[in-house]
Design a protein around this nucleic acid. Structure first.
Lengths: 148, 148
DNA sequence: TTGTAAATGCAATATATTTGCATTTACATA
DNA sequence: TATGTAAATGCAAATATATTGCATTTACAA
């Protein structure tokens, strides 16, 4: 991971600068982890991942994720377990549904829809201002199904 | 409200009995409120609504909602604000998307989809066991938009 | 009528998240 | 390069939220 952080550091620095965020250890590390994640992560996942690299306070992780979300660097949505999930969405990419396991709380990204969900669903709430749309499937994941 | 509770009491009693739940003040009142609600409600909404009628402990509301969900009397899903939402789904009715306001946290039911969402989305998570699907739109509701 | 399991309320506990504040850090600019 | 300033950080404490334990009450079947 440390090699990766170094390799990508220029991109990360630039992305933080664009958003007016200081390039600190915690900020660049968290953005790096989020950009390379395969699925949304919650505060604890991200905090644990940070610890592999260096010591970062849990409060800092909370505050950084809030900031990233406010500055539209990442998407935020509430998981089935009541913990916010964070996901880096590359410029111009299309939203996709998620699955979250009720046993282990792991979140998995699913294939994107075959149509424009924003248009399709937002017609149903014309009088409100829509900021985000989330499709969440819940149940038991393959791994947990195979447990005793 | 008290008149309504009396009018519907036989239906409610029967429904509780079917699920093996004792017909107590709190249980029948909560089921009544949920069956007559226009939109999903959270623990605090439901507790407040109960107080209009009679005194019910908040812990009892928590425990009752858990039980109703376990016995499949109501649907449970997590709101944007981290509070579980509960909704009574009549036998044979079709799922619908929801909108939740980021300012006041109110949840609104939207028109049902024009296709079978369970089939459509669950194809994307074939290896997992799907228990529920929720489509949630977030933003600012009409009422909050009109505030200063 | 009465035995028993379920339901309830209250207090205490556990957990998650936020806030206050002193200190440190990044970074613009002098 | 030095330095002023606002942002970022860590720690402790506060707050908010949800759960548990336990004694008491209640519904309801036998």
């Amino acid at each position: 991971m440390s090699i990766m952080v170094c390799m990508h550091s220029e991109d990360i620095k630039e992305e933080l600068r664009e958003k007016g965020i200081k390039n600190t250890r915690a900020k660049s590390l968290l953005l790096h982890i989020l950009k390379n994640a395969e699925a949304p992560m919650d505060v604890n996942n991200l905090h644990a991942e940070c610890q592999k690299e260096t010591s970062v306070n849990l409060v800092t992780v909370y505050r950084t994720l809030q900031q990233f979300h406010e500055k539209a660097l990442v998407e935020e949505f509430m998981g089935k377990d009541g913990a916010n999930q964070y996901e880096y969405i590359p410029e111009g990419s299309i939203a996709h549904p998620h699955f979250q396991c009720e046993k282990c709380n792991k979140v998995i990204c699913l294939e994107e829809l075959g149509f424009d969900d924003a248009l399709y669903f937002s017609n149903r709430a014309k009088h409100h201002k829509i900021n985000s749309i989330h499709i969440m499937l819940n149940g038991v994941c393959e791994e947990c199904l195979s447990l005793p």
